[in-house]
Amino acid sequence: MRPTMKRLMLIAATAGAVLSAGSAFAIDTIRVGFTIPAEESKYWMMKRPERFPDIGKTYNIEWTQFQGTSPMTQALAAGAVDCATQGVLSLANGAVNGGLKAYIVAQHVYEKPGGFSVYWAVKDDSPIKTVADLKGKTVGISVLGGGTYGPFAMILRKAGVDPEKDIKLVETGFAVSEDALRQGRVDAVNMNQPFAARAEAKGGIHKLFSLSEAMPNIVHILEACRADFVDKNPALAKAYVRDITHGMEMALADRAETLKVVNEVLKAPIPVLDTYLLKDNDFGRDPKAAPNFDAIQLMLDIYAETGMLPKLSVRQFYNPNVVAPIE
């Protein structure tokens, strides 16, 4: 450690001590990590706090935005945030390898039957007609080893394509996936909302297969809180989960306002959001943000089957006292 760094850390420690001493008199603050684009209930809490009786009165929320769920797992493990958005895989990885103890307290979006399912697209003039045609091709995926990889690998194996050896897999963030496909940098790429809606409106590409073919009710993102935080502050955690429930109810009840709220967070134009948000071609949302533990268990089983994780029980993430819905 360099001396300058040490000095800085000393200053940091002192400042931290002073700050925490000061805040002992203030109301409780919960540190929350979020990401974009599909956490409408939290966006409501962020942008319309006056609609929640407790926020700013009995407790405060300190929001930090992260680049994806994986850094948030690290932040949870490091104790830098109390609650954060998680994917099933990132949370399980944190629990298995990172010693993270956390509860799943709510669920943001899942793949409802007939609704939007993350899919892999090809160009209309592509020679790839079936999954088996992917052999030897370059395929884009949003996150290598991410939550979509499990079901993706299953579908490929079923079609006789080895996802490890037969294709070249490159990481292509959702934002660039459409352009990467059109420019021919990848032969197939995965699509997510709102990018899928934009790409479909433009035309020229179509769906090759979607994740729902591998398994139904995939839970994409959920809300997790550190177990030590919940155990120490049960009332605060409960108030937070109650507001997530309440936020989800309001988000579903008032679509026009939700469009505005999401626009304020994502900065995506309302006309684009209007093409899919909370419609049939969107992800599914539980009316009270309740986690579907059975579906999550099914996903954990699939990750275990594909060798991405050891066998896990969803029970360790379950705390009956602090889980949506809380009214």
Binding site: G33, I36, F66, Q67
Partner: peptide
């Protein structure tokens, strides 16, 4: 401000990058 952010110029920039708002 790329990985974790609360406010800042990078907040605007990387947000836009994540959402594919390239004008911004």
């Amino acid at each position: 401000e790329m990985i974790a952010r609360k406010s800042g110029a990078g907040n605007i920039l990387f947000n836009a990058l994540d959402m594919g708002q390239y004008d911004t």
